[in-house]
């Protein structure tokens, strides 16, 4: 598969480790990612909370560039994904919004450029069998709570690749990587998302709920697929424990970091050192990499 990759702003700063691990794992799985040239910000929550026209136009600028590349868009950030999909949805379903957007960007656009999240690409395009066949260091014995957060599955008429209340794609990927996924009820609870900087007390409470529940379900670590979920649960974990009661230190890894380890990639290539809550204890428990096909 060949994709027009939309990294988004977080992936070039706070989530550089997500960026590194996505590129490394997709390359290892034989997918070709080419960045959308001169991509610009999707506008995220500040745009849709302030200016509806802007919230559609900013993603469409990037979708037009992807259209020129003739490739479907791939993105890793849950917010970018939701904004790109929402822009397509609005252009497709609301003729007045489409006209407004076309006046702003100065080009015709019908909302037809496909937009995929990495979880969708890994499960639907590459597939669990192909992943399992390339696992050289199965994550045996590692108990993982897959945490999806809000925007990967909501609202379903816009994002629509999974059940909004019970998503399974990340569980499928982690199972293919040899991990034991835990069954737990907070997969799609919100972490507080963009309130991170303005109202961190709320984010600490929500993060504590999520981490404590993952631990109760027997998880050693969390797998996430959103830069903001990762920051809120990792960087703020100590604050959450201070405010709402002690928690065992729980590493919060990007799903592509865990998958990359299973594919035999080095922790350095996956940006594992970017974590605040260290995953060294988990890494020590993994067996050394074997020849390809070991876990198939």
């Amino acid at each position: 598969m060949k994709y027009a990759f939309f990294p988004g702003c977080s992936l070039e700063s706070t989530a550089w480790d997500f960026d590194a691990s996505v590129r490394a794992t997709f390359a290892a799985l034989g997918a070709e990612l080419t960045d959308i040239p001169d991509w610009s910000c999707c506008g995220s929550t500040p745009a849709h909370a302030s200016n509806t026209s802007l919230a559609v136009a900013l993603p469409v600028m990037n979708l037009l560039k992807a259209r020129d590349m003739g490739r479907p868009v791939l993105t890793a950030c849950a917010s970018c994904y939701a904004r790109l999909r929402t822009a397509n949805h609005k252009v497709k379903t609301d003729p007045a919004e489409r006209q407004r957007t076309e006046r702003i960007v100065g080009k015709p656009y019908d909302g037809a450029v496909p937009v995929h999240h990495i979880l969708e690409a890994l499960t639907r395009h590459i597939g669990a069998d192909a992943i399992a066949a390339r696992v050289t260091r199965p994550l045996s014995g590692l108990k993982v709570a897959c945490y999806y957060g809000c925007l990967l599955t909501r609202p379903p008429e816009v994002v629509a690749f999974e059940n909004p209340e019970h998503p399974v794609s990340m569980d499928t990927i982690m199972t293919a990587a040899g991990a034991d996924v835990v069954d737990w009820p907070y997969k799609t609870e919100c972490c507080g998302a963009g309130l991170s900087m303005t109202t961190s007390a709320v984010v600490n409470r929500l993060g504590h709920n999520i981490l404590a529940m993952a631990r109760r379900a027997g998880a050693d670590c969390l797998a996430v697929a959103c830069p903001l979920c990762q920051v809120n649960l990792d960087l703020r974990q100590r604050d959450a424990a201070k405010a709402h009661g002690p928690l065992p230190e729980t590493p919060v890894l990007f799903v592509t970091q865990l998958l990359g380890l299973a594919l035999g990639l080095s922790p350095e290539a996956l940006g594992i050192e970017g974590l605040f809550v260290s995953a060294d204890g988990l890494l020590d428990r993994l067996a050394p990499a074997k020849a390809a096909g070991g876990a198939a």
């Binding site: 849709h48 809000c150 925007l151 909501r154 919100c190 507080g192 998302a193 963009g194 709320v202």
Partner: peptide, 8 residues
Amino acid sequence: ASCEACTT
């Protein structure tokens, strides 16, 4: 937080 749980 614009998590869209209500809308969903």
